[in-house]
């Protein structure tokens, strides 16, 4: 039996019932880094701290602006102009769960050494642009650390995941034909299948291996065609995908007053077209409304969207740590207007 204290079991009762003692123990032993205490960053922090994470480091060099008061529930008007990770803010995070070891850092993440990053089991970046993702991804890849990136633009957002390679157990209802080990596609493989019975229910315990593409290579050899083999299927892809990937080419506006941020539909169109060319999606109908929406809402943080994306990301992190379920591989796109959340492998 894994050693969780009586107090921990009582506190985490409702979630242990979902993912088991062993997973809870793994969560408690992990150290996660969250870069940028944005609206979505704060939501992730809340979820992980409540979930009973062992060690958490948050890094953000920004100051609290007036606009942040409608996007981060750890801030209040008395903290205007203070550091986003002011000691008061840290206390408020800690109050959520006194058992978590929390470190806040107000330095610039880009100035940190490789050795500094080496202590983390997972790196989570929020509101990053392409240049920043490339930079952090070089570090995470060379240190073999799983990486999550989440960006939001008003009602739209995305999560990019690079777990390098990852194995997990999947519990599947018994099939008429027994599942066999083997490659399902270029990023996923069934390594082992075992038939099990629990409470008179038969199921197959599948050990799955997921392989990931590093960020700098996703546009080089896109895998979309493997999953959308015909033109008809390719053309059904929602153009939010290319618009949001296009956004990555625009420098992040995080920690800047939104009043000074202006992105035109035209410049976004240019970047989106470039992505479409690289992904082989040139015949895709680029939805003008989405372009217009995303250009206007570029860099805007919106609480419900942050809550949804942070919830998905945190859930995936917990699954990843507990080696359960199939993790996101590798791009989740969120369209809040249509309430859609497709996951693509690119």
């Amino acid at each position: 039996m894994v050693n969780l204290t009586k107090g921990e079991i009582a506190l985490y009762d409702r979630q242990i019932r979902l993912w088991g003692f062993e997973a809870q123990h793994r969560i408690r032993s992990s150290h996660i880094l969250v870069i940028n205490f944005s609206c979505v960053g704060a939501e992730i922090v809340k979820n992980l701290v409540l979930g009973g994470l062992g060690f958490l480091t948050i890094i953000d060099s920004g100051k609290i602006l007036e606009q942040d008061l409608s996007g981060n529930f750890f801030f209040d008007v008395s903290l205007l102009g203070c550091s986003k990770l002011d000691s008061t803010v840290k206390e408020r995070i800690q109050e959520l769960n006194p058992r978590v070891d929390i470190v806040t850092d107000t330095c610039t993440w880009a100035e940190k050494s490789q050795a500094w990053f080496n202590r983390f089991d997972i790196i989570i970046c929020t509101e990053f642009d392409a240049t920043q993702i490339e930079s952090i991804s070089r570090t995470s890849r060379s240190l073999n650390i799983p990486l999550y990136v989440v960006n939001t633009h008003g009602l739209y957002g995305m999560i990019f995941v690079d777990l390098i390679d990852h194995s997990s157990h999947l519990r599947l209802a018994k099939n008429r034909i027994r599942r066999k080990p083997g490659r399902s596609n270029s990023v996923r493989e069934i390594v082992h299948v075992e038939e099990k019975t629990e409470n008179d229910v038969e199921y197959e315990d599948c050990l799955i291996q997921n392989y990931y593409t590093s960020f700098d290579r996703i546009l080089e050899k896109p895998k979309l065609k493997e999953f959308f083999p015909t033109m008809k299927k390719l053309n059904k892809i929602d153009s939010t995908l290319i618009v949001l990937l296009g956004c990555l080419k625009i420098p992040t506006s995080y920690n800047y007053p939104i009043g000074t941020v202006q992105v035109t539909k035209l410049e976004l169109l240019e970047f989106a077209n470039e992505i479409a060319r690289k992904l082989g999606l040139t015949s895709l109908d680029l939805n003008d409304l989405i372009l217009q929406d995303v250009a206007r809402q570029f860099g805007c943080e919106f609480q419900p969207v942050a809550a949804i994306l942070a919830g998905c990301l945190s859930q995936d992190v917990i699954n990843m740590l507990s080696k359960r379920e199939n993790p996101i591989n590798n791009l989740l796109i969120f369209n809040g207007k249509k309430a859609e959340m497709p996951i693509y492998t690119i």
Binding site: E43, Q303, P304, V305, A307, S314, Q315
Partner: peptide, 14 residues
């Protein structure tokens, strides 16, 4: 768990 609640409360408000 916190995450499921957060996701569906988010959708509800949206």
């Amino acid at each position: 768990v916190a995450t499921t609640n957060a996701i569906f409360a988010g959708f509800s408000s949206l």
